[in-house]
Amino acid sequence: MTDTDVSRVRMTGISKRYGALQSLDNASLNLMPGEVLGLVGDNGAGKSTISKVLSGAVIPDAGTIEIDGRPVSFTSPAEARAARIEMVYQDLALCDTIDVAGNLFLGREPKRRIAGVPMLDKKTMHERARDMLSNLGIVIPDTRMKVENLSGGQRQSIAIGRAASFNPSVLIMDEPTAALAVAEVEAVLELIRTVSKRGVSVILITHRLQDLFLVCDRIQVMYEGRNVAERRIEDTNIEDVVNLIVGRKFTARSAGHNHQERGAPA
């Protein structure tokens, strides 16, 4: 699966404008098979937008996308899904009034035919949903529960489970750990390692910089819709990444150094 130099994803010259705001300005992204790319940047830097372009949820104004060397142009999320690109959206994109199994299979529900009429195969859906969740170690008592009755962590687990379970070749995760407890974050990072070993390329967007250093091969920094830097993980450290994100020398106590200064007046 990692036998060639062909990029799994190659996005070049991607631009997107929302009214007065140039959300993406000639941005690019390269991703090798099995590679884990950390995408970082300030709020509004364009991380979510470029990943939504790849997942087909946003159509760019300009730019080209190649998947495994073949140019593609997604006009809908369905086409990106067909190209085995899955995304965990920051807002999770769950339907509250639909049950767990229904959300996992949303848009690709198994069919059965009764007198030639295609129907939802709910039995298969619930059986496979239970398997999918238990394979990922997600504990949901009942796949018939409506998603609105679940906790934030469970909801996030379902969004991740949905993206990871349909044999993706690219898995995009936009803030997948925002609502998770420490142990659950650990488990998501473990999941990323596992799927990338299987050859799945992963794009991880997160504000938790320490996580990047646990799973990523490479970090790409965006600033106001442009790529500003790229670092192999072994060539960089948290301080360096923080400076790249804000675009200047910055002493972030949250980045884990200068512990003795904590509590000192700003």
Partner: peptide, 29 residues
């Protein structure tokens, strides 16, 4: 009743009402 509860169409009708953008992102027209 069957269309609403047992078919893809009925499921997507509920999905559109619950979260239209999520349903769209799930590949539904």
């Amino acid at each position: 009743y069957i269309a609403f509860n047992e078919t893809h169409f009925g499921r997507y009708v509920t999905g559109v009402g619950a979260n239209a953008e999520a349903t769209r992102r799930a590949g539904v027209n």
